[in-house]
């Protein structure tokens, strides 16, 4: 039963990904990206990662879709068809994929309870967290307590990204077009306008 669900979800994920490649409408692309996140959340549930599933559903399918729709409102609606040949990207992708598949050949089989990832700290966390932290959800116990510094680092990253976004798109800025318009008023200002342009890029 679980295998059947996996196969169905996988087929839908691949179909969604191919639809993103094919479509030229950016709105459709953004919506399909939300669908992709939601399907991956479904797959996370079948892999027992319920915390990850609801984070992905809220953040990946929710917030990121909203951010992208906001960007579309400020930029463009559709994509210009590419004039380049897809052969070189296809070659790059196939070679990278082949190398990655070669890398997985030495990996432990799916669901192997004796895999290296299962034998070091993970059983220790599971055995000790009821006595030490006393929180039913082991993921919460590790996230907030054993690996609290990870979460602190994450907060620092989110803060930095938030500051950068504010610096980039808030406030009044002089665009290149306006700088040029101001420059045509006085003939001598041309050099200055181009100087400004190169400073910003």
């Amino acid at each position: 039963m679980n295998t059947l669900i996996d196969i169905v979800v996988f087929t839908m994920l691949v179909t969604t990904a191919l639809a993103v490649v094919r479509t030229h409408s950016l709105f459709a692309t953004v919506m399909l990206s939300g669908v992709f996140s939601l399907l991956s959340a479904l797959l996370f549930v079948t892999l027992d990662a319920v915390d990850v599933a609801f984070t992905e559903a809220a953040v990946g399918a929710g917030i990121s879709t909203v951010l992208m729709l906001g960007t579309l409102a400020l930029t463009a609606r559709s994509e210009k068809p590419s004039s380049h040949s897809p052969l070189i990207p296809l070659l790059v992708v196939l070679v990278t994929g082949a190398v990655l598949v070669y890398g997985t050949l030495d990996m432990p089989a799916f669901g192997d309870a004796l895999a290296p990832a299962m034998t070091h700290v993970a059983p220790d966390y599971i055995a000790r967290s009821p006595a030490e932290i006393d929180v039913p959800n082991i993921v919460t116990a590790i996230l907030a307590s054993y690996r609290g510094f990870d979460t602190l680092g994450e907060t620092a990253v989110v803060f930095t990204a938030g500051m950068s976004v504010l610096l980039l798109i808030s406030g009044r800025r002089i665009t290149r077009a306006e700088a040029e318009k101001g420059a045509t008023g006085n003939a001598k200002g041309t050099d200055d306008a181009i100087g400004d342009g190169s400073d910003e890029t």
């Binding site: 953040v59 990832a117 993921v139 680092g153 994450e154």
Partner: peptide, 21 residues
């Protein structure tokens, strides 16, 4: 194993921050 879940929770949030940027 709960450890990959914890790491990926962090990665999802960092991912949305970089996407926003």
């Amino acid at each position: 194993n709960p450890l990959p879940h914890v790491l990926i929770l962090t990665a999802i949030v960092v991912g949305i921050a970089t996407t926003a940027l």
